[in-house]
Simulated assay, not measured.
Amino acid sequence: MAVEQADAIIRVRDVTVRFGATEVLDKLDLDVKRGEILGFVGPSGAGKSVLTRTIIGLVPKVSGQIEVFGVDLDAANAKERRAVERRWGILFQQGALFSSLTVAQNIQFPVREYLKLSQRLLDEITIAKLGMVGLAPEVADRFPSELSGGMIKRVALARALALDPELVFLDEPTSGLDPIGAGDFDELVRTLQRTLGLTVFMVTHDLDSLHTACDRIAVLGDGKIIAAGTMAEMKASQHPWLRSYFHGKRARAVVGSNTGVV
Rank of each mutant, 00 (worst) to 15 (best):
E4H: 14
I9R: 08
R13V: 00
R13C: 01
V15G: 03
A21F: 04
E23D: 04
V24C: 05
D26F: 08
D26K: 11
V32H: 03
E36L: 03
G39M: 01
V41M: 10
G42M: 07
S44I: 13
A46S: 15
G47R: 11
G47H: 05
S49N: 06
S49M: 06
I56K: 01
L58T: 05
P60Q: 12
K61C: 03
S63T: 11
E67G: 01
F69H: 05
F69I: 07
D74N: 12
A76C: 03
N77E: 12
N77S: 10
A78W: 13
R81T: 12
I90V: 15
I90Y: 14
Q93K: 02
G95A: 08
T102L: 05
T102R: 05
Q105H: 09
Q105A: 15
Q105T: 06
N106E: 07
F109C: 01
R112Q: 15
Y114A: 14
Y114I: 02
L117K: 06
Q119V: 10
R120V: 15
L122S: 08
T126S: 00
I127K: 11
A128M: 12
L130P: 12
G131Y: 07
V133S: 04
G134C: 02
L135S: 11
A140V: 05
A140K: 02
S148W: 09
G150L: 10
L157I: 09
L161H: 11
A162Q: 09
V168A: 09
V168Y: 02
F169C: 07
F169E: 05
D171K: 08
P173C: 04
G176C: 12
G176K: 12
P179V: 03
P179C: 12
G181T: 14
G181F: 05
D184Y: 00
D184W: 03
D186Y: 04
E187F: 05
L188T: 08
V189E: 00
L192H: 06
L192C: 08
Q193F: 03
Q193I: 06
G197L: 07
G197M: 10
L198R: 12
M202L: 14
V203G: 07
V203I: 15
H205K: 09
D206M: 08
D206I: 03
T212Y: 14
D215Q: 04
D215E: 01
I217M: 04
A218P: 06
V219Y: 02
D222C: 09
G223D: 06
G223C: 07
I225S: 05
I226W: 00
A227V: 00
A228L: 08
A228C: 15
E233V: 06
K235Q: 15
S237V: 04
S237D: 02
W241A: 04
W241L: 09
S244M: 08
F246Y: 14
H247S: 10
H247K: 06
G248D: 13
G248M: 09
K249E: 15
A253T: 09
A253V: 13
V254E: 09
G256V: 04
S257E: 11
G260Q: 08
